[in-house]
Amino acid sequence: MVDLDASALTTTELNRKLRELAAQGTEHIHILNPQARHNIAVGLLDTCSITIEGSVGYYAASLMDGPQVTINGNAGWALGENLMKGKVVLTRNAGASLASSMRGGEVFVAGNAGARAGIGMKGGSLVIGGDAGFMTGFMMQRGTIIIGGDVGEGVGDSMYEGTIYVGGEIGSLGSDAKIEEASESELIQVWETMERHGIHDRKKFTKIVSAKKLYHFDSLERLEKRAV
């Protein structure tokens, strides 16, 4: 294990050091004093394990492909943005645009998330222990979002595919989103996922999917034929 005192490094130096240590096969990196700075642990493409002791700013653990990052604190906007694979765990609350455009891997937030959680999500799994803000799952394409608590207005607006499970109250459904009955096996999967993260309250989750009514224009001109 290697300890890094972020307060003694610029963000660029810290990210460079993380890349070097990961490339050398360092198994665990421990970052102290992150000072809630933006862009910590950005663009890491090697497998490694990182723990950050304290809160981080925007874009923490973003543009990553492989690492496992645990943050013991809060995070600003776009935590885990465009994650390809790997895992991001946040012990407290996340700001807006959590896990935006993530394509794979897993993001878990123990507390609440701000607006637009899982916006443009393209794969993987986003799990929020607490509440999530408005426009959660906006234009989501693939993947799964699980929200243990309540979700705000416009959930699942214009989603294409993927599934959103909500344990608490729903502010309102977004355009072209609909509620569908979750099957027993789906509920068991959701409960098991929550239990892996230490949440044992087996709620009756509401399942939200795309109504698929906005997939196509209602009408076409003569030459605008359909592919399928």
Binding site: S97, R116, I119, G120, R142, Y160, H216, A227
Partner: peptide
Amino acid sequence: ELPLGIDQRSPTRHPD
């Protein structure tokens, strides 16, 4: 990572 054959109307605001 979209459904086959949809009339794709992309977002205009950045997600993040």
